[in-house]
């Protein structure tokens, strides 16, 4: 991924509202959790990858991922964000928009191939389970990046407990080398869970 002067940049076509640096789009960590992850930890391996993005929302992050990746399968189940996502996927032909509930991968599996990396950014209480049910799309040795919003699981429980519970669920499902990165600096109440699928 492209870093210049300590900033993460993105090589794609410029969209309205983008900040620019040396003629390239700036990928701001405050707006995108994936960028925050590369600032705080390491670059996710999305270069020329096949990506399944669950919870694409209006496509802010997806637009950047699509700049790097070969193809992005973007799943979103909410009407208003989907409208923006359609506009985006008309601009970028390597985005495959899917208007489905990520809880039911069987509804969209005809359109998704085996991918190198699954990114999940869904603020739902059953986030880990949704990720696990989508592991059918992940190649052996592929990576899962899960952005866990702890407030959407519980507001009163201890945050470390929530996180470790999610991690143990993923471990039971067959993910290994699980690491967690707190995104507190840029996104309050969020933690990134990274794991390798080894089945």
């Amino acid at each position: 991924m492209i870093w210049q002067d300590g900033r993460l940049l993105s090589p794609g076509k410029i969209r309205r509202g983008d900040r620019l640096h040396n003629g390239l789009r700036v990928w701001p960590p405050e707006r995108s959790k994936l960028a925050a992850l590369s600032y705080l930890d390491a670059d996710p391996p999305i270069d020329n990858a096949r990506v399944l993005y669950l919870g694409a929302a209006a496509g802010t992050t997806v637009s950047f991922v699509a700049d790097y990746a070969e193809v992005v399968y973007a799943v979103e189940f909410s009407r208003r964000p989907m409208q923006s996502l359609i506009r985006l996927s008309q601009e970028r032909r390597n985005i495959i928009p899917l208007f489905e509930d990520a809880r039911h991968p069987e509804r969209y599996h005809a359109f998704v191939e085996k991918v190198d990396i699954v990114i999940q950014d869904i603020a739902q209480p059953d986030q880990p389970e949704i990720a696990i049910s989508n592991m059918i799309f992940l190649k052996p040795g592929g990576m899962l990046i899960l952005f866990l919003k702890m407030f959407s699981i519980s507001v009163s429980k201890n945050q470390d407990d929530i996180c470790s519970r999610a991690v143990s669920k993923l471990k039971d499902a067959g993910l290994c080398e699980i690491t967690t990165v707190s995104l507190e600096k840029y996104h309050g109440g969020h933690v990134a869970i990274l794991g390798i699928w080894n089945r």
Binding site: V71, Q90, R93, N94, I96, P97
Partner: peptide
């Protein structure tokens, strides 16, 4: 990929 993109947008 480009056909898939158009088809899914349609859907």
């Amino acid at each position: 990929i480009s056909v898939l993109n158009r088809v899914t947008i349609g859907m």
